[in-house]
Design a binder for these strands. Structure first.
Lengths: 206, 206
DNA sequence: TGTACATCAGTGAACGCGCGTTCACTGATGTAC
DNA sequence: TGTACATCAGTGAACGCGCGTTCACTGATGTAC
């Protein structure tokens, strides 16, 4: 029997609202989404929203928290191939990031849009970038240790890599593909980014 | 004497509104700017706005038209160093783009924000990118002609370059610099991008 | 196990704030004669 | 050159739409005895 207790029912509705929000965000963008769009998509009344979230911002925070818990972000942080003088290490990072972005595209898109309008989310996004950056510093030291020369000082080299991967992922995974362009397969995208970044960092080919 | 005719006065007000809009856009972002913010910044009454523009969107279109007329965009399109197997040609392009972005930062920022919310502006931005891309195709053919191998197929190689330069410029020229980071000088930025892109495209150093 | 009352998730119409947009009015510039 | 009227840029208070948010109500679940 589906003897749903009150708590279960509330949790169901909350989950339905979140899932609906992700779908609507993907379809119309976070900024264009009205609260009633979300409740309608979830098949609930408008008022129901406020039993679970105080605002659209809070819902997004909740989605971001889920994203942190989902684990593949952890994979980016834990031990892994870290010697960027080895193309395989670069590819590993690129692939991780690509997968992460692919998995969480609607939420990342929403965060990006929210950050344009809301300082708190801008800071969230900045700190997300910063945590990636500090991870990469160690990896890039292997490059200079191996006698190769970075394209610019450490900070700028990291920023370039991050911006490149991030905006490239956004271009192909979030926005509709430009008319007449053939989107890359996942493998192709990872390979293209890996080659570009490895070359850019080391000045060598592989 | 400042015997301002009606037309002159109207033109002055329109120019004042545009200048005010650029300042306010730079300060709070396009999406966060209200029409009364613009009129207040320009020192005019709210109703005055509608003597000149039907909406905030139309004002932005007007700013974009000015940008096209300002001429440095033309420099990107006209004849120039075009053999990307030569680092100087890459640097020339990077520098052009950097200057363009620097000059027109508030308008570009506004366009970017408008594109998130408005399909028409999304298309404007896409076609802006596409026009850059078609220009670059010829330049990259020199790379393969010189026996070097692009990091990915033509389209993707161009997209990576464009995304990298665009997002890097946005990071340092528009957004407030991340806490604790030292922004690059113009020369440093151009040099960093040039080296990264040249390496990425050709697999060689210089 | 049954009854009476309390609590709570969900509902949707109504409310009200913020802001885009209008419009009657003012004072100055242009035009006709 | 002067006078009377027309036109227009600019003004700012008022209007009204859209949408976030509230709240009295419903029906179902939980609790007390």
């Amino acid at each position: 029997m589906t003897a749903t207790s009150r708590k279960e029912k509330a949790a169901e509705t909350e989950a339905a609202l979140k899932a609906a929000a992700r779908r609507v965000f993907a379809r119309k963008g976070y900024l264009n989404t009205k609260i009633t769009d979300i409740t309608a998509e979830a098949g609930r009344a408008a008022g129901s929203f406020y039993n679970h979230f105080a605002s659209k911002e809070e819902l997004l925070e909740s989605l971001l928290a889920d994203l942190g818990a989902s684990g593949d972000e952890a994979a980016l942080a834990e031990d892994h191939l870290s010697d960027f003088s080895d193309p395989a290490a670069v590819r590993y990072h690129v692939a991780m990031y690509w997968e992460f972005y692919k998995e969480h595209a609607p939420t990342m898109q929403a965060l990006r849009q929210a950050a344009m309008v809301n300082d708190a989310f801008a800071r969230t996004m900045a700190s997300f970038g910063a945590s990636q950056a500090s991870d990469l510093t160690g990896h890039l030291e292997h490059v200079t240790a191996a006698g190769m020369r970075l394209p610019a000082r450490m900070e700028l080299s990291i920023a370039m890599m991050f911006q490149l991967i991030d905006s490239f992922a956004q271009m192909w995974l979030l926005d509709p593909a430009p008319a007449g362009w053939t989107p890359p397969t996942d493998e192709e995208a990872v390979e293209a980014l890996t080659r570009f970044v490895y070359r850019g960092f080391t000045g060598r080919d592989y």
